[in-house]
Design a protein around this nucleic acid. Structure first.
Length: 126
DNA sequence: ATTCTGACA
DNA sequence: TGTCAGAA
């Protein structure tokens, strides 16, 4: 399930191919990058190289624009998304709380009694 | 042949 | 956003 993500992020498409896949002009594709909405890679010859994820991102931008959202609005949407992503990353790295400890001790108790805990890993192991 | 950047009758 | 120029 991780091999797939890797392929989708491989930048192997030149702008010409992306133009056809997304129905966008080179001008538009370059402009969206200029506005910080997409970040295609560059090859040795300074040519933009897109991944399938990049294409999806372009299609997404296209939809937002069609929905009447301007560039500034799209920027805010992505800003909030990465903001929540950081929050979730922080939650994942959060230290154990008193409730976590109680849960752990509770599970230990059940295990000793010969019962199986139906809880999965939900706290930092280190 | 393709793509890149910069500029604007 | 289109389009043309000059370069890579």
């Amino acid at each position: 399930m991780k091999e797939k993500e890797l392929r989708r992020s491989l930048a192997v498409l030149p702008i010409g191919t992306v133009m056809k896949l997304a129905n966008l002009t080179a001008r538009q594709i370059r402009y969206y990058e200029e506005q910080g909405l997409s970040h295609p890679e560059r090859n040795a010859g300074n040519r933009r190289m897109f991944s399938l994820n990049d294409v999806d991102r372009l299609l997404e931008i296209k939809d937002y624009l069609a929905a009447g959202i301007n560039i500034a609005g799209i920027k805010e949407i992505y800003a909030q998304q990465q903001q929540k992503a950081k929050q979730q990353a922080a939650d994942l790295a959060r230290p154990l709380t008193d409730n976590d400890v109680r849960q752990i001790l509770h599970d230990e108790f059940l295990n000793i009694g010969g019962f199986k805990s139906k809880h999965g890993p939900e706290f930092p192991t280190h």
